[in-house]
């Protein structure tokens, strides 16, 4: 039962990452990152089911609420206010993004394989997928133009870091997870305000138009 659940989690993380890469529609991206938030937020509970603790349930509930409900709603609102629903001309198009995604996935396999011997048993592919999610987030940030898609990229990156935390640092969960929550919560909140200002000032949220400051 555990294995089936874990494999399901792995598949959902993988699929959500791929979906994030090959779509240019922002509502789809928000839904993908929300699903990813649900799954990754519940990862501590799935991975450490046998060590059932109330604090674990508590942390999971908060994380899922923030990553899976509140932040996607905030993003949705920003999107509607800004009136953008498509990432028009990203620096890297959806198809090439997918190819780069495959490359990043194999890179994650390669990097984690050198560390695999010291990884705990029974984690399945979680470290690989966590690293892939981190890379994916970084790639989305550099390859997309709109401020809102960059925020989605940042959230993806955070999801990846969180997955690492859930897989590796369960012995000291509090600081790590509270840290992630603070980060996501305040960071994105302020970015939301920034998007609002960029939108109001420039009538668009393309960050590549933000290029008056050159070297």
């Amino acid at each position: 039962m555990d294995d089936i659940l874990l494999n399901l989690v792995v598949v959902i993380i993988l699929l959500s990452n791929i979906r994030l890469l090959n779509t240019s529609r922002i509502p789809v991206m928000i839904v993908s990152v929300a699903i990813q938030g649900w799954v990754i937020g519940s990862l501590p509970l799935v991975l450490h089911w046998e060590r059932f603790q109330l604090t674990l349930v508590f942390i999971t509930l908060i994380t899922v609420t923030i990553k899976g409900v509140i932040l996607p709603r905030l993003l949705n609102r920003s999107m509607q206010q800004a009136g953008v629903i498509r990432e028009e001309e990203p620096f890297v198009g959806p198809t090439s993004s997918l190819l780069i995604g495959l490359f990043l996935l194999s890179l994650s396999f390669w990097i984690t394989s050198t560390l695999r011997s010291s990884l705990p048993e029974g984690l399945s592919f979680i470290p690989v997928l966590a690293l892939f999610t981190v890379f994916n987030g970084l790639f989305l940030i550099v390859s997309r133009k709109k401020a809102i898609t960059q925020v989605i990229g940042y959230l993806t990156l955070e999801n990846g870091v969180y997955a690492f935390g859930a897989a590796l640092a369960v012995d000291h969960p509090f600081l790590v997870e509270l840290g992630v929550l603070l980060d996501v919560w305040v960071g994105v909140f302020i970015m939301g305000i920034a998007i609002y200002h960029i939108n109001r000032e420039f009538d668009h949220i393309d960050t590549d138009k933000l290029s008056t400051l050159k070297h």
């Binding site: 970084l138 940042y154 955070e158 690492f164 200002h197």
Partner: peptide
Amino acid sequence: LEAAWKYLLICSVGIALALM
């Protein structure tokens, strides 16, 4: 605004890596 946006985004990414 441009400077603040760059600062927030780039440093947040950096800080996420430091958390890792």
